[in-house]
Structure formats: structure tokens, C-alpha cells
Design a protein around this nucleic acid. Structure first.
Lengths: 246, 246
DNA sequence: AAGTGCGATAGTGTCGACACCGTTGTGTCC
DNA sequence: GGACACAACGGTGTCGACACTATCGCACTT
């Protein structure tokens, strides 16, 4: 997927269209994409002076953009302290996935209940495209395809509150999922999960769909946990933790 | 409950402590409380000039406070348009309650699983106090007691993400619940629900606790729906949407 | 008389400046 | 040499000003 598309999807997830000035949107997209792609490391300072210089604006729109990202959990702000890229603890991540699992299973049940056959066929089409991307090993494209698939599902279900919360949780896990999907074999598992889910939807089996999506979420969390443990292990030689946990 | 306590609880729900400057917090509390108490009507304009004059500050902290309230769904902001008190549609309200029901039932299950006996006893104590308030017909005090009860439950469960989302959903329904609890008999039903929930917790019956809290949520929605329909009916004689000012 | 275009008004978004505070590097004392 | 105080720096929060635009009233048209 091209970079522009990335920004379009991000703009939707951040609900920037019409809600924010283009200038603010641009900054929020750039920083948000940077966090998700790993260009900006977790815990890194995001001082508004540097950012305003980079975008050749004053600090006002920068502050606003950072507040947008804060509310999506990508940035942490404390009064009078420099904003930082969010660094969720392992416990935070588990909590997020636990809620996400519950809401995704709600989503699946509602999807089976409310989606028309045409809409399910459309989703199936998306999953097939994702299968192609997975086979090619195009992690990035698969990654964003996954995001858009969930986005479409929430649209079909038509519960705005549910959509907003799931979008927000998705953003929080995006940087993690980006890592976790890179793990060998993970991509294939993921696409298998999606295909099983589609089948359950086609058979209008809400219970099964719920269970499948919950299972897939649990597996995603496992994958993220393993990834983090490997990172921890790899970082261990460097000894001291310069920044103590908040 | 005294007004100061209201503001303390609101400050917690809005996560203002340490996250925002006191000035911003003060404004957000005042406006937020105004919305919940009905002093500020749904759909009403909230222009930042008036507010900045009222608090004798510039518009910058006012804008920030309004953004805080926007993220909690109490205020609607569109670029270049005046911020307004949120006016959720009936469908929005149903969506919110649907998600809330699902997450509260998750909360109840986790509560049964994780709370110590002491903590459950503490919750029981709170409910008993609420029974007293309900008998006295002190709607406001009961109202905030209810909010604090849920707040405490989410704390005990210890899932920060779940707490944050439930707090936000609670805020969105607060103005509605304020109305709905005023309905005759509603208070007694509500306290009965809470007592049954406590009993299920004491018996460590997670399934039952989940079902009870879900049922209570459905009843709360019903009550809100009735209230809204009555309001609609009462407004119908005036017919035209046109506002006749002079 | 209702609809349309235009100007006045009021409110938003952004800016650069300034005061205050957190951070960091340095010097001092033991 | 290490702990502490302190000063210089860097960054945040707030302000008042200004440009831009949504909104509203008003004259004009049909």
C-alpha cells in the first residue's frame, strides 16, 4: 500500500476529516504514522518546538495534533512535561487486548445479525485480496488491509460508539501488530483466521464468528507477547534502564 | 453530595489530575458539570470568547478544555464551527448503551473473579449507603454514589483500558441518567439491581452478576427512552423547528 | 412575499512573545 | 569522590493580536 493510502486510513481512524483543520491533521498524521511505523520510538520525547519547526508553523497546531494522538493512546502528555510517544507496559497491552477481544466478539455477533449477503460477499473479497498479499509476503499491505477490513466491518454494523472505540484500540495495538505480523508464519495464521471468520459469517453462525474472532485476538496477543519478550531478552545485555517505568 | 465533590468526581472521570493544567481543569469541570446538570442545554453553542471572558483567561485554555470534553463525547467540535453541547440522537444513545452493557457485563465477570472479599464488602457498604439515599429520595446524591460505585468497581478490576472506556461511556450517559433517575420508582429499581448484583458477587456467581448488570443496563436504557419520548411529546405542540427569538 | 446575493458581524485558527517551570550540567562542600 | 545546590538552558502554558471564515441581517430581485 502506498504511503498516501496509509495517511488516508490514519486520517479516518483519527477522525480528522472535518473535525480538525488540515494543518493539525497533517501533523497528527505524520506523527501518528511515525509512531506506528516505528520511526518514532516508544518513550521518545516529542517536543512541540522541534515539531513546529519541522512543519513551519507555530506550536498551537502542534499541541492540538498531539492532543488528538493522546486521546488515541499513541502519545502521553502530562502537564508541564514534554509529550512522549506512548510506551504501554505489558499489563497495559494485555488489558487492551482483553477489552478488544470482548468488543470484537460483539462486533462479529452483530455482523452476522445485520450484514446483508452482499456486504459479506464484499468482506470475503477483501479477505481474498489479503490472502494474495499474505502469499506475496507483503506485510505492510496486508497490515493495512487488515485495518481496513475491521473498519469496514464496524461500518456495516453501524454502531458509531463501537466503531470509535474499536478504532482507538486498533490504533493502540497497531505498532505492536506491525511487529507481530512480521513474525514468520504469523501472516498465514492471521489470514486463515479471517477466512474462517468469513465462512462463519456466510453460514450466519454468530456464536462461531464470535468465538473465532476472540480466538484470533488471543493469538495476536500471544504473538505480541512473544515479540516483546524477545526484545526484552535482546535488550538485556545493555544493563541499566535509563528511564524508569512510569 | 456537595458541589465540590461533584467536581472532584468529574475531575477523576475526565482524567484531569496531572494531565492538564489547573486552569484548563477548572474550565472543563465547570462546563462538564453544566452539561451534566442540564444548566447547558444539548445543542447549545459554547463559544470560546464568552467562556474566556467568564474565566478571565485567553481562549487557549478554553479551547483545550473543550477538546477534553469533546473526547469524552460531551461536546461536539467541527473545524471552523462553534463548539456545541453534544446532542446525541436516540440511535447514538442506543449504541452507547449497547456497548456499555457489554463492557459492564465484562466488568461484573472480572469483578467476581478478581475482587477480594474485603473489596466486595466495601462495595456492599457503598450500596447500603445508596439505599439510604434512595429512601430519602436524594436523587443527586444517589446519582453520584452510583457513579462512584462503578468507578470503584473498575478500579478493583484493575484493567485501565476498561476503566477509561467505561468512564467515558458513563459521562456520555450521565445527563441522560440524571433525567432517568428522576423518574418515579426508577431509583428504587436501580438500588434493587445493585443489591442483587452485590449478592451475586458475594456468592461468586460471575454468570449471574454479568446477567444482572446487563439487565440493569437495559432497564436504564428503557427508562431513558421513555423519558426522551415524553420530552418529544411535550415539545410536539410547538411544531416548527424554527426558533422564534424575538 | 419568498428567494438570492452582499456586506457587516462575530467567532475560529494561528501566530509570535513572554513568563514560568522542569531539566541538565556545573561547581561546591563534605 | 559523591551528594547536593544552583544557575543556565530548554520547553511548556498562556496571552493578545490578526487573518480568515461562517453566520446573520438586509437590500435587491422576481
Amino acid at each position: 500500500m502506498a504511503d498516501q493510502d496509509t495517511h488516508v486510513v490514519l486520517a479516518r481512524l483519527l477522525r480528522l476529516r472535518d473535525r480538525r483543520e488540515p494543518l493539525v491533521a497533517q501533523i497528527a498524521e505524520w506523527v501518528g504514522a511515525g509512531i506506528i511505523e516505528g520511526r518514532l520510538a516508544a518513550g521518545q520525547d516529542l517536543n512541540s518546538v522541534d515539531l513546529s519547526r519541522r512543519f513551519d508553523t507555530s506550536r498551537t497546531p502542534v499541541r492540538e495534533a498531539l492532543m488528538v494522538l493522546e486521546q488515541e493512546g499513541l502519545v502521553e502528555m502530562k502537564a508541564r512535561r514534554r509529550p512522549r510517544v506512548a510506551a504501554p507496559s505489558l499489563q497495559d497491552i494485555r488489558d487492551i487486548y482483553q477489552v478488544r477481544r470482548r468488543l470484537l466478539s460483539m462486533l462479529a455477533a452483530l455482523l452476522v445479525e445485520r450484514a446483508t449477503d452482499d456486504e459479506i460477499a464484499e468482506l470475503r473479497g477483501r479477505v481474498e485480496k489479503m490472502r494474495g498479499l499474505a502469499d506475496e509476503g507483503d506485510v505492510d499491505a496486508y497490515f493495512w488491509g487488515h485495518v481496513q477490513l475491521q473498519e469496514r466491518m464496524t461500518e456495516i454494523v453501524g454502531n458509531a460508539t463501537l466503531k470509535q472505540i474499536l478504532d482507538s484500540l486498533a490504533l493502540r495495538t497497531l505498532m505492536l501488530r506491525h511487529l507481530s505480523l512480521t513474525r514468520p508464519g504469523r501472516l498465514a495464521y492471521s489470514v486463515d483466521d479471517q477466512e474462517r471468520l468469513m465462512q462463519a459469517c456466510e453460514e450466519r453462525d454468530g456464536e462461531l464468528a464470535s468465538a473465532l474472532i476472540a480466538g484470533a485476538t488471543v493469538r495476536a496477543l500471544r504473538s505480541v507477547e512473544e515479540q516483546i519478550q524477545e526484545q526484552e531478552a535482546g535488550r538485556k545485555p545493555s544493563r541499566r534502564r535509563r528511564t524508569p517505568p512510569t
